[in-house]
Nucleic acid binder design. Structure first.
Lengths: 229, 229
DNA sequence: CAAATAGTGTCTCTTAGACAGTATTAT
DNA sequence: ATAATACTGTCTAAGAGACACTATTTG
């Protein structure tokens, strides 16, 4: 897998990818964490991630590490930022490329976590634990990115299953932004965004209340007009 | 300068920084380019940049390379994206961390380009030349970032000298967005943004027309409300 | 004086948000 | 029936953009 190359002439380094995978479960924003099997931070929680192979793209490495460490396959994956403080890894000079991934709340087991050491944990709980390296900063930065992207990108749909209701979409916004949104205005607003939502023609009924129309995400890459906080 | 470390155990790589420095000169958006002294792309233009030292932060490396290769000192510097395609550098596995920098149009010579091989060139001209590595993609990505940030960040002020008029600020927007903006509405709009502009109390007269009030940039990090295109 | 730029006034049209009211379900 | 959710209607206030008009300079 890992090819050889000539010994380094200049300052060399390891390059790793780390991934913040977000989902909404039990009405809370949750993040995928793994239990570390080695020092530093042995036994504690950390973000999934690992070294990039020699013949591998960054995004490919992120997907591979995610699959290996958590068993997850994500549809939304985006580079956030690269961390390069000289002492960020006490062992060797290592650069960390952070990725943000987003998943729907799939039923436990279905493409879920085969890996024993992987678990969903509410974001605020993980933020309160002692994370190794600069994983705390990474989590904060990824969250900020996700919050910002809700406004102008269809990323919220990545938190939903392929077919979803506007109520489900609204909950994503409410939970991630931590605010309450007027259902009536939110419905009008999202439907008015060009190519954001595509009506399926079906409706679903979940619990009491009028059945909701279902939608799939459209071709829009930018929300125009944006959904303001 | 470059410390030693133990020989690599896993896939190692070189890490470089590349910088897109933008300014507005002669009413055009221009970018700093250097003439390459080695292959690949020998004799052609390229973005300034170079390898990160072992004991150096990424941003520090970007500032150092910029100083060494172009003699420039910038105030605005921001990480954009990291490029990691396995074949992006034909010689060795090299990751490239892209930075966006912005400068005012300083009078030629003053903290200008000591370096012979560095030059300002209009962005569209550099885009039309044959750039080495993935510098073309980098330039496109940096431009998109700059255009987007005009809307919601005070980055436009970084294109201006410490004290500037609203007319000068408007020109930055017009040139970078490639659109015409209504001077009256633009003036009202920018002045209404919280903590964006701070009046100096002075006015300056450049050519014909009523003298303009001058401003310095305020404490705002986010423009609220934003300046829409 | 004319031409050019800075800045104010005002009008119109669109949109965001508040909130009342109607539709349709589970229990 | 009651409660809960989905969705429509409507009003109000704020904001964006068009554009006329005033202010102050250079030549």
């Amino acid at each position: 897998m890992t090819k050889r190359q000539k010994p380094p002439k200049y300052s060399w380094a390891y390059v790793a990818v780390d991934i913040v995978v977000l989902t909404v479960r039990d009405r809370r924003l949750q993040v995928m964490a793994i239990r570390r099997g080695r020092k530093p931070g042995l036994g504690g929680l950390a973000l999934p991630g690992g070294f990039v192979h020699l013949d591998e793209d960054l995004e490919t490495a992120a997907r591979r590490e995610l699959r290996e460490e958590t068993g997850l396959e994500v549809d939304f994956l985006e580079q956030v930022k690269t961390y390069g403080a000289p002492d960020r890894d006490p062992r060797n000079r290592t650069f960390g490329v952070l990725y943000l991934a987003v998943m729907p709340n799939l039923p436990e087991g279905a493409a879920g976590t085969d890996a024993d050491d992987a678990q969903w944990i509410p974001v605020d709980e993980l933020l309160a634990t002692d994370l190794p390296f600069d994983h705390h900063d990474m989590l904060v930065d990824a969250l900020e990115r996700a919050r910002a992207k809700l406004e102008y990108s269809p990323i919220a749909a990545s938190f939903c299953r392929p077919t979803f209701t506007i109520g489900q979409l609204r909950q994503v916004y409410e939970i991630i932004w931590g605010v309450g949104l007027d259902p009536a205005n939110f419905s009008r607003k999202t439907r008015s965004v060009d190519d954001f939502l595509v009506e399926t023609g079906d409706t679903v009924s979940e619990g009491p209340g009028r059945p909701a129309r279902t939608y799939t995400v459209g071709s829009a890459t930018v929300l125009n007009p944006p959904i303001n906080r």
